[in-house]
């Protein structure tokens, strides 16, 4: 029997769902393997009949925390998809500012009516079984399909634990630090699996897949300062998507 899959969305741009929908040929294969019973905007999560919950977005309100707990209760398998769900992502930038000021800036007079809290990844609240990393998850869908296939096979999916540099070099890219106009890059500490998508298009890696298990942050600090970044600029670079790592993730 095909596993029943529900998609759920928390604080995010909902781009991860779009990526899944745009996996073209792979999407058809996927739809052959699973049955989708709930896709995003379907707002009700209670009593839905699903075994696998695919969750995008970070948790940033009290209400979202209640929702994710309910989803976890129902789902046999929970997949966090995208950087927001996996590491809090861009939402966590605001965690480093005064929450009261931020709320006031966004909601003005009615700030008190909103139950927003510090942004956090899904696994800060419930257990996550699988992570489909990245912002957005890798576009050719390879890794997402690997995870779904792994679930169907009953195996642990293959997710690399080496830096982006490995795949960046395999592609034969000119290192961002060695370009005519060098760009600072988080590739040396970020987990590969994206086939170095951003550096392959001339951009820096911004760490959207989270860090490797043993990142050499001292070495990276040396590299970044050698490239002219101040400590604060370096920190901000990390905080763009990896702010959560500072609170022990």
């Amino acid at each position: 029997m095909k596993p029943k899959v529900g998609f759920f969305s928390f604080t995010s741009c909902e781009g991860c769902q779009l990526v899944v929908l745009s996996m073209a040929d792979k999407l058809l294969d996927l739809l052959g393997a699973v049955e989708v019973v709930n896709f995003r905007e379907a707002s009700s999560y209670k009593g839905e009949d699903y075994d696998v919950a695919i969750v995008e977005g970070a948790l940033s309100t009290v209400h979202e925390i209640e929702e994710i707990r309910a989803i976890r209760k129902q789902a046999k398998i929970l997949i966090a998809i995208g950087a927001c769900a996996h590491i809090g992502g861009i939402n966590c930038i605001r965690n480093f500012d005064n929450q009261f000021e931020i709320k006031k800036a966004v909601y003005g007079e009615r700030a008190a009516n909103f139950d927003s809290i510090l942004a956090q990844p899904i696994d800060a609240v419930v257990k996550v079984d699988y992570y489909s990393r990245g912002c957005p998850p890798n576009r050719d869908g390879e890794e997402f399909v690997e995870i779904v296939t792994a679930i169907l096979q009953g195996k642990k999916p293959y997710i690399p634990n080496f830096p982006v540099c490995v795949q960046c070099k395999m592609k034969g890219n000119v290192c961002t630090f060695h370009k005519e106009k060098p760009i600072t890059c988080l590739g040396p500490v970020t987990r590969a699996g994206c086939n170095a998508h951003c550096p392959s298009y001339g951009n820096a890696c911004i760490g959207c897949r989270g860090l490797v298990e043993e990142p050499n942050l001292n070495a990276h600090q040396e590299t970044l300062s050698g490239a002219g970044l101040t400590v604060e600029e370096s920190l901000n670079f990390y905080r763009m998507l990896n702010g959560m790592m500072e609170v022990g993730k």
């Binding site: 830096p163 540099c165 490995v166 070099k169 590739g187 040396p188 500490v189 990142p215 050499n216 070495a219």
Partner: peptide, 13 residues
Amino acid sequence: GKLCYGCGSCNMV
């Protein structure tokens, strides 16, 4: 070794 990223760049190239 202290400054090694373990990034494998040297291996790949």
